[in-house]
Amino acid sequence: MLRNLLLATLLIPPLAYADGGKPILNVSYDVTREFFKEYNPKFVNYWQQKSGQTITINQSHGGSSKQARAVADGLEADVITMNQPGDIDILYQRGKLLPKDWQKRLPHASSPFTSTTVFLVRKGNPKKIKDWDDLAKPGVSVVIPNPKTSGNGKYSYLAAWGYAEKKYGGGDKARDFVTKLFRNVPVLDTGGRGATTTFVQRGIGDALLTFENEVQLIKNELGGSDFEVVYPSVSVLVEAPVAVVDKYADKHGTRATAQAYLEYLYSDEGQELAAKHYYRPRNEKVFAKYAAERFPDIALFSVDEVFGGWDKAQKIHFDNGGTFDQIYTK
């Protein structure tokens, strides 16, 4: 019996990690470049120790919805790391590339960390921007990526809508508020990183709306003394879901590696790294460790709570002919 057990122990590892060190492709959204640049070598090291395999991880970044469409159209990603579930849902809807219930496969609905939408303003906050109302005032210029192509832009739009709904009531009032706000948006970039370029490097606008981790990156690495971060009274909970793209992982024979790659995001090391990059970790201990320093306590609402889920929000607001198309006429 003992001998059989010993034999089984010797045989199981090579069978369990039968991917043979094949490279994997992670298709992600625009503003995760820096995080995965640091995360990937850590995972490669971890995986090397665990399985004995040395692997390569390839990255692809861009506007999240655009990236998701690319995968649905045939870009053979082994894993996809997006900033909204809707972008992963289309992989099921358009090509059955993964199962419908993909969110059940990892904790926290397959979202290992979160973020929120905040404001970045110029030094001294010359337009005195404190909350959402200030963004809709005449004479204020706001930079937001295109909600049709960018998850970052969608969250900014929904955050403004949710704020208006809570403060002024739903329906036409929220619509009027968001219309006014988007009148102040002079240019629409396709992704979050492009919007950062518009605001920081091209010097356009009084405020940039983007993810909390992105504004901290700008502050820390792209001229921190020239900008200030403003946390509004309320904002949207940004969930960053991840999934193995079953069809392509199976085709490439990389399922075990891809699965481990995503599970490692939930490890202490992965969560610490998320916090370091200003993503709000799901691990409560890690979150508590960094909360005071990095994550101000603001009221957050989820897309499910205010909009009834991403499917509904997409259909009403962002599909062709939807509310955004109606209010944004520039």
């Binding site: 240019v187 396709t190 492009g194 091209r202 356009i204």
Partner: peptide, 17 residues
């Protein structure tokens, strides 16, 4: 200046697109 920057940026984005 902002208008010129916006026009420049729009042109830049249009070229990228």
């Amino acid at each position: 200046d902002q208008k010129i920057r916006v026009l420049d940026r729009k042109n830049e984005i249009a070229v990228e697109e």
